[in-house]
C-alpha cells in the first residue's frame, strides 16, 4: 500500500536525542524528502528498554503503554526508527490487543482506556511498505553505484515474530530492497540477524567485543565495504567495540540522504566514531 503525504507521530527515543543524533537528523530529512510529515510525539517517555523487561513486569508494559496512550490521543500511527524502542512499543501494543487482563491492568495503571486505534511502525516498514520502492527510486539523484554493503537487521526488529510481524525472523529482505533501490550493491550474508550484545555493552564489553568482531569479520568475508543498519544500539556497539577500528557502519537513512543528494548528508557522516566519509569520497559519492 502506498500512502504518500501522510503524517505520523514520531517517537525518536532517548538514543536519537543523544549518541545517535545523526540518525534523528537523517530520519527527519529523508522522510521530508519522501513526503512524510513526522510530528514528534509530545512529552514522550522512555520505553524502558531492556532494563524495564528485566526488572519489572508492570513497567515493561506500563512505560511503552504510556507512550501509546499519548499516541492514541494524537490519533496518528507512530513511526519509530530505533529497533529497541520499536520492540518495546510493539510488545505493549501486542499485550494490549492479545493478552487477557492487560487492557484492564493498564486502565488502572494509566487511568486510560485503550482503543487500539494507532499502529506502531518501524521506519523501515514505513518507508518500504507505505512509501514504496518506486517513490524511493524516483528521488535518487546520485545512485550509490560501486558501494558494496551488507544489511544488518539485528534482533529487536525481527523477533519475536508474533509480536513484531516484521518480514522474516531470520532472513529479512526489506532493508536489502531499500538499499538496492538507491543503487547500492547489496551482498548476501549469514549474519543479518545475529546479536550485537545490545545492553551488555556498558558492563560486559568482553562479550560484546567478540560478538561485534564476528559480525564485522563476516561482513568483510562477504565482500562488503560497510555495514548498513537501522538500530542505534547495533551501530554504537559495532563502532565502539570493533577491534578493526576502521570498518564503516551507516544508518540506512544516511545513505538514502546521500542518494537523494541531500546536502546535510556529509554532516551526519562526520558524526561517526569510525571514519565514514573516506569510503564515500573514494567512490565519488561525497565531494
Amino acid at each position: 500500500m502506498t500512502d504518500n503525504g501522510a503524517t505520523y507521530s514520531y517517537y525518536p527515543g532517548c538514543s536519537l536525542h543523544g549518541t545517535s543524533r545523526e540518525y534523528d537528523a537523517s530520519t527527519q530529512a529523508v522522510c521530508a524528502e519522501l513526503g512524510i510529515e513526522l510530528k514528534e510525539l509530545s512529552d514522550w517517555v522512555c520505553c524502558g528498554a531492556s532494563s524495564g523487561h528485566s526488572l519489572d513486569e508492570t513497567l515493561n508494559i506500563g512505560l511503552p503503554a504510556h507512550t501509546l496512550k499519548l499516541a492514541e490521543k494524537e490519533g496518528m500511527d507512530v513511526a519509530v526508527p530505533c529497533a529497541a524502542c520499536y520492540n518495546r512499543l510493539k510488545v505493549a501494543e501486542h499485550a494490549l490487543q492479545e493478552k487477557e487482563g492487560v487492557r484492564e491492568q493498564m486502565k488502572d495503571l494509566l487511568d486510560y482506556e485503550f482503543q487500539g486505534t494507532v499502529q506502531v511502525l518501524n521506519l523501515v516498514e514505513l518507508i518500504k511498505d507505505r512509501v514504496g520502492l518506486e517513490k524511493i527510486r524516483s528521488k535518487v539523484v546520485k545512485p550509490l553505484t560501486g558501494l558494496k554493503v551488507v544489511c544488518y537487521y539485528g534482533c529487536l526488529l525481527v523477533r519475536p515474530a508474533e509480536v513484531t510481524h516484521f518480514d522474516d525472523p531470520e532472513h529479512p529482505r526489506s532493508l536489502d530492497e531499500i538499499m538496492e533501490a538507491v543503487g547500492a550493491e547489496v551482498l548476501n550474508w549469514s549474519y543479518k540477524t545475529e546479536c550485537c550484545g545490545g545492553s551488555l555493552s556498558l558492563t560486559r564489553d568482553d562479550i560484546v567485543k567478540g560478538l561485534v568482531d564476528g559480525i564485522v569479520d563476516m561482513a568483510k568475508e562477504a565482500g562488503a565495504q560497510a555495514i548498513v543498519t537501522l538500530c542505534p544500539l547495533c551501530l554504537e556497539n559495532l563502532e565502539m567495540r570493533q577491534s578493526d577500528g576502521t570498518y564503516p557502519v551507516f544508518y540506512f537513512t544516511e545513505l538514502l540522504g546521500v542518494a537523494f543528494g541531500l546536502k546535510e548528508s556529509e554532516h551526519w557522516l562526520k558524526k561517526h566514531l569510525v571514519d565514514s566519509t573516506s569510503l564515500m569520497k573514494s567512490l565519488r559519492l561525497l565531494s
Binding site: C14, G18, C46, A49, S51, L55, D56, L200, T203
Partner: peptide
C-alpha cells in the same frame, strides 16, 4: 554488573522520564 546497570537505567527514568547517557 548487569543488575546494577538495569537499576541505574530505571532510576534515571524515574527521575526524568527519559534516559540520559552521561547520567546513566
Amino acid at each position: 554488573g548487569m543488575p546494577a546497570m538495569h537499576n541505574a537505567f530505571l532510576s534515571g527514568i524515574e527521575k526524568r522520564g527519559r534516559m540520559h547517557e552521561v547520567s546513566l
